[in-house]
C-alpha cells in the first residue's frame, strides 16, 4: 500500500447524496480477476450516455474541475461490499474522498487501499462544495498526521477522526495482513482453546 501523509490539491465537487457502489462501479464491470482498470469505468453510467457518448453535464466531464480529492454528498459508498468501488475511485486518480458520512464497508475498503476517507461536518461539507464549485482553483489541504482538512487561503479548517491503528497503517503503508500473520501464534492458541 502507498504511504499517505499530506495532500494539497484542487478538488472535484460531486454534490449528490447516497452515492451507492453500483453507481461508483456498475456490476457489469466486475468480471475482471485483477485490480487494474476499474478507474476507466468509475461512475460509468453518469459519465457516459447509454450510446457511449460523453455526458457533458456530469461533473467529472467538466474540464474546469480536476484534482485528486473527491468531495461528495452525505452517505457516500452505501450498498454493496464490492472493493472494486475503492479500486475504481483510486484508479481514476483520487487519493482522498470527503463526505459528511461514509457507509461502513466502503470506508474500510478505502482505508485498506490507501484511499483516505475524510468525514467532515455537514456545514463544512457545504462550505467546501460551495467554494470548490464556484472557485475550481481552490486548494484543499489534507494532513493525516494532524487529522485536519483546510481550504488554503481561508481560515476554514476542521479536524477529522480516524482509527489510530488505521492512521499508522496509512502513514507507513502497512496493511492488516502483515499484522495478522505476525500474530499466528496467538491465533493458533485461540483455536486450541475455543469455548464455543
Amino acid at each position: 500500500m502507498e504511504k499517505f501523509r499530506t495532500l494539497t490539491s484542487t478538488a472535484i465537487p460531486l454534490n449528490i447524496e447516497n452515492v451507492d457502489t453500483d453507481q461508483i462501479i456498475p456490476a457489469r464491470f466486475l468480471k475482471a480477476t485483477d485490480k487494474k482498470g476499474f478507474g476507466d469505468n468509475v461512475f460509468r453510467d453518469w459519465r457516459f450516455h447509454k450510446d457511449g457518448s460523453i455526458n457533458e453535464s456530469f461533473i467529472l466531464n467538466n474540464k474546469v474541475y480536476s484534482g485528486s480529492i473527491l468531495i461528495a454528498g452525505d452517505n457516500f459508498g452505501c450498498g454493496s461490499s464490492r472493493e472494486h468501488a475503492a479500486w475504481a475511485i483510486g484508479g481514476y486518480g483520487f487519493k482522498v474522498v470527503v463526505s459528511s458520512f461514509f457507509a461502513d464497508i466502503f470506508k474500510g475498503n478505502a482505508l485498506n487501499n490507501g484511499l483516505l476517507p475524510v468525514q467532515v461536518s455537514k456545514e463544512f461539507l457545504e462550505h467546501l462544495l460551495q467554494d470548490v464549485t464556484s472557485h475550481p482553483e481552490t486548494l484543499v489541504k489534507v494532513n493525516l498526521e494532524q487529522q485536519t482538512i483546510a481550504i488554503e487561503g481561508s481560515d476554514l479548517s476542521e479536524m477529522f477522526a480516524i482509527d489510530p491503528y488505521k492512521k499508522t497503517c496509512m502513514i507507513n503503508g502497512y496493511d492488516d495482513i502483515d499484522y495478522l500473520i505476525n500474530n499466528k501464534k496467538l491465533i493458533e492458541a485461540f483455536e486450541a482453546n475455543k469455548i464455543y
Binding site: 454493496s80 485498506n112 495478522l180
Partner: peptide, 20 residues
C-alpha cells in the same frame, strides 16, 4: 457480515479480521 476483498485476503491468511 460482508467484507471487502482485502479482508477476504486477510481471512485467507489468518482466519481473522482486525475490527472495531
Amino acid at each position: 457480515f460482508g467484507i471487502g476483498t482485502s479482508q477476504v485476503a486477510q481471512v485467507f491468511a489468518s482466519q481473522c479480521l482486525l475490527l472495531t
